[in-house]
């Protein structure tokens, strides 16, 4: 049913992603789909990497490990201003990689989401394909 599952990840908070990745992996096994791990970076040095190329290598290694038995690749999005552009860039990535399902970790909505919606919530609102938001327990 799903050929390509997009899994947006935040490498700086990789520890909070295990639930979502587990779900993505199970779905990939069940439907025989391919996993694509997607992450957004700026071109300035950040906590994860010093430049986009290094970021790309880290995402690739992450994808290989997190993908387990499923076929997993990675896709880096370079943004001038990740704080503001993240949501639009993720929507664009869906068509760039030809995904037909998004599995994404997100937090439990709170007051702040009324002002600044979560990336997962925004993606679900704007994506043309199915979006599976996995709430983190914490």
């Amino acid at each position: 049913m799903f050929k390509t599952i997009m899994v947006p990840v935040d490498l700086a908070h990789a520890d909070k992603l295990s639930d979502a990745i587990g779900v993505a992996r199970d779905l990939a096994t069940q439907y025989g789909s391919k996993l694509v791990f997607v992450a957004v970076t700026a071109s300035t040095p950040g906590p994860v990497a010093h430049n986009p190329e290094e970021f790309g290598r880290k995402l690739e290694a992450f994808a290989k490990e997190a993908g387990g038995d499923a076929a997993a690749t990675s896709h880096v999005i370079v943004s001038h201003d990740p704080t503001a552009d993240m949501d639009d860039k993720l929507v664009d990535a869906i068509s760039e990689i030809g995904a037909d399902l998004v599995v994404m970790a997100t937090h439990v909505p709170g007051m702040a989401d009324m002002l600044v919606p979560s990336h997962g919530g925004s993606l679900a609102r704007h994506a043309g394909i199915s979006v599976f938001l996995v709430r983190s327990a914490g």
């Binding site: 700086a12 906590p47 010093h50 986009p52 190329e53 290694a61 992450f62």
Partner: peptide, 24 residues
């Protein structure tokens, strides 16, 4: 080449300063 935060390979040629400081 590991996922750990380490000394990066520059994009093209550049001279990255090796420091133990991690941004953030």
């Amino acid at each position: 080449e590991t996922v750990d935060i380490g000394i990066p390979e520059p994009e093209g040629s550049a001279d990255i300063i090796e420091t133990d400081y991690q941004i953030g």
